[in-house]
Nucleic acid binder design. Structure first.
Length: 436
RNA sequence: GGCGGGUUGCCCGAGUGGUCAAAGGGAGCAGACUGUAAAUCUGCCGGCUCAGCCUACGAAGGUUCGAACCCUUCACCCGCCA
């Protein structure tokens, strides 16, 4: 990927700009030389998810254009809880949980940016560093004094909450902490641009106001840019799996196979948007894929490309290859019996699995439940509904047990629920059993 | 601090002593149709050793042959008043 000539133009055609402060001034400053910008990531979970990639990759886009990104982990703000976009108060996390999550998230942030000594070398920060040492008196005098209550109440995040049941002083204060972060990064790193989801607009402008009051408007030409909060065709946020859960970046939470499959299954109506927001593909390529989707939707060229780009970006080319082999084997035309053991093993490495010991062979229902992590009632229902498959053959009866001939290469059973959910059952290899 | 209202299954929400594993909607799962898509139709949608049993309607006790529904206490939320 080559550096982008004009990062604003690039963001613009991708649909990545929701709101900005003075756009002409921002363009001018970006053209004048490397600008330091930041985006905050609060530790709301053990991992970032696909949705978090939109702002994170936006930081990367700025870096590729020669600017210096600061990724800020919200070690302090995570304690408080951002009221933005929430209808009810957050449950406070313990210090251990926050610290743990910050550690995990920092590690993920590092992977998407370049940390070198060049002018565009990234910086990783944690707002706990300057927030924790601040006393309540300092906070109220040095930060709080600059915030008229009227302006704070007018923020969308606050007024929405006042409508829907209120909020506590704790969350009300959140915007002050985030504003102070911007001021702090302005002072430490000369940071003059903050980006974030569009729900962050209020918090970001709170920072602008603070910096201008403290530093003076002329001396501090600071900017804000927000990214649109994109929802898919069904109204869900990006990165929500059909199961309702997030699609995580941590391979322990969402396997590379699941990520790949999630992206491969993206709705036709959304895939163009996702290509723009989540990949670095040039405009011509994206428009080519748009055309491919409308001309030959069944080929799903755009989905395939999206899945490849992101799986490689998040998990590396090695994982991508493994995942593609798995998908080809499991969804391919050939029968499972024809696969050689190496291909089969690789394909199934990504699937949830159940290891059997010796002893009597359980029923298919028990195997489904054990391998897919569902209840036996659920497994029973799957069989009753005709949605359970053993080695791609529909299971007819709840009491069925796999026969000796069902074991692929003497060791494996491939179980499937519906079209896409696959699991594997493995038993110890018979010492002298000939391959099937 | 006072008074009133509330807490139901993943979410919203009906249910005021037996016919309640609990209406309805959403989400989700499966089948049919497809392109591992969408839309549509159909079935399912607490657990289990599944024609039955167990657990569940904020928590703990109590009344009753029988409680999501009545009583007591506790916790949390909301509104009005101070």
């Amino acid at each position: 990927m080559s550096p982008v000539a004009d990062v604003v133009d690039d963001l613009s055609w991708r649909g990545l700009i929701a709101q900005t402060t003075d756009l002409a001034a921002l363009r001018r400053d970006l053209a004048a030389g490397p600008v330091t910008l930041y985006c905050g990531f609060d530790p709301t979970a053990d991992s970032l998810h696909v949705g978090s990639l939109v702002p994170l990759l936006a930081l990367r886009r700025f870096q590729l254009a020669g600017h210096r990104p600061v990724a800020l982990a919200g070690g302090a703000t995570g304690f408080i809880g951002d009221p933005s976009g929430r209808s009810s108060e957050r449950v406070l996390m313990t210090a251990e949980v926050v610290a743990d999550r910050v550690r995990l998230i920092r590690r993920q942030l590092e992977r998407f940016l370049d940390f070198d000594d060049s002018p565009s070398g990234a910086v990783l920060a944690d707002n706990l560093e300057w927030t924790a040492p601040m006393s309540a008196i300092e906070f109220l005098r040095d930060v709080g004094k600059h915030f008229p209550i009227g302006a704070m109440l007018a923020k969308e995040s606050v007024s929405a909450r006042l409508e829907s049941g209120g909020l506590t002083f704790t969350e009300f204060s959140y915007q002050l902490l985030q504003a102070n972060d911007y001021l702090e990064l302005y002072r430490r790193h000369g940071c003059t641009l903050q980006i974030g989801g569009n729900d962050q607009w209020g918090n970001i402008t709170a920072g602008l106001d603070l910096i201008r009051r403290v530093e003076g408007a002329e001396r501090a030409p600071v900017h804000a840019l927000t990214l649109p909060l994109v929802t898919d065709a069904s109204g869900a946020k990006i990165g929500k799996s059909t199961g309702g859960g997030n699609v995580w970046l941590d391979p322990a939470l969402t396997s590379p196979y699941s990520l790949y499959q999630y992206l491969l299954n993206v709705d036709d109506r959304d895939v163009g948007t996702y290509l723009r927001l989540l990949t670095f593909l040039p405009r011509e390529r994206v428009e080519e894929l748009d055309a491919a989707t409308s001309d030959r939707p069944q080929a799903r060229a755009a989905q395939r490309c999206l899945a490849e780009e992101l799986t490689a970006l998040v998990h590396g080319p090695g994982e991508l290859a493994a995942v593609q082999a798995a998908s080809a084997a499991l969804f391919g035309a050939g029968s499972l019996e024809d696969l050689d053991e190496a291909t089969l093993t690789a394909a199934l490495a990504e699937a949830p699995s159940l290891q059997l010991g010796t002893g009597p062979v359980p029923t298919v229902v028990e195997l489904l439940a054990g391998s897919l992590g569902i209840s036996r009632s659920d497994a029973r229902r799957a069989v009753r509904d005709g949605g359970a498959y053993l080695n791609n053959a529909r299971v007819g009866d709840e009491a069925d047990r796999p026969g000796e001939g069902a074991w692929l290469h003497g060791r494996f059973l491939v179980l499937r629920r519906g079209k896409r959910t696959i699991a594997v059952v493995e038993r110890p290899a018979p010492a002298d059993a000939p391959p099937l």
